[in-house]
Nucleic acid binder design. Structure first.
Lengths: 137, 137
DNA sequence: CTGATCTTTGCAATTGAGTTGCATTACAAA
DNA sequence: TTTGTAATGCAACTCAATTGCAAAGATCAG
């Protein structure tokens, strides 16, 4: 059993061939991806399958979802011990408006905000927009 | 000349009847709205006009844009002296997954993050998701 | 092994937000 | 009033996201 297979099973996700390939791809690229990115990579697979795979990964806490300024939903692999809980596992992301790439900054956490009364937080989405190193020259 | 007319002119926006009505509506509701919200309110007006009005307001710094977990672009009036600059004028928003409403928390600013080298920030989008007072009962 | 059952995948079609081009109308300057 | 510019309305389109249903594959009991 591979490490990726274990990773899926530890999140109660049936490790099918398709899911293994997608997990492998996300682990290799180490970056934030969109559904379209998967479509470009897996031209033989159906859009719906890729879509539902991401949704399954999301529901089982294997990936987290990022809403950047592009309006396109992005996904990134969670760290091994992540439980996607607020605020500890929520971190900053960076969206480059030039190359439209999104980056994960796991070391940049978020403050434990003191919200107005009766506002109960459960998750967070923190995206800083700007120019990335490749586009800042 | 009304206060709203002045507000438009101070941002170099021609104060047409349509724009006055939309600004008035946004000032009255004091909340975060979407294009669809405007459509519901201004049934006689065209969708495109409302869309372009929001775009004009945005480009002239009269409103700021919020990308919450709903995937629908939201807008909120800026404070009088706001220049939409990062990080000083960027603040936290709250999205209720139950009633799907979004709230502005202008008093909750964002940290001045120390980003990795050559990442140049220009704007930020900080949304906390959870349950609002009306839905937390 | 075989059949029954449940899950996963593929195909087709739809929804809805966002956007654009162009014609028409309203407004402002000369 | 005339003329030019800006704003509005109408129609159509793009594209990400989503759903229903059928086909294929995996799992399990007998």
């Amino acid at each position: 059993m591979t490490i990726h297979e274990k990773r899926l099973q530890s999140r109660d996700i049936q490790p099918t061939a398709m899911r293994m390939r997608i997990l492998l791809f996300m682990a290799e690229t180490k970056s934030v991806i969109s559904l379209s990115d998967l479509e470009e990579k897996f031209t033989h697979a159906d859009r719906t399958t890729l879509y539902r795979t991401l949704k399954t990964f999301l529901e089982h806490g294997l990936v987290h979802q990022i809403n950047d300024a592009s309006g396109i939903t992005k996904y990134a692999l969670c760290s091994e011990n992540c439980t996607c809980s607020y605020p500890d596992d929520v971190h900053v992301h960076f969206y480059c408006f030039s190359c439209e790439q999104t980056f994960c900054f796991p070391h940049l956490g978020i403050p434990n905000y003191d919200l107005p009364e009766n506002f109960t937080p459960s998750n967070g989405n923190f995206v800083i927009t700007g120019s990335c190193p490749s586009c800042s020259s």
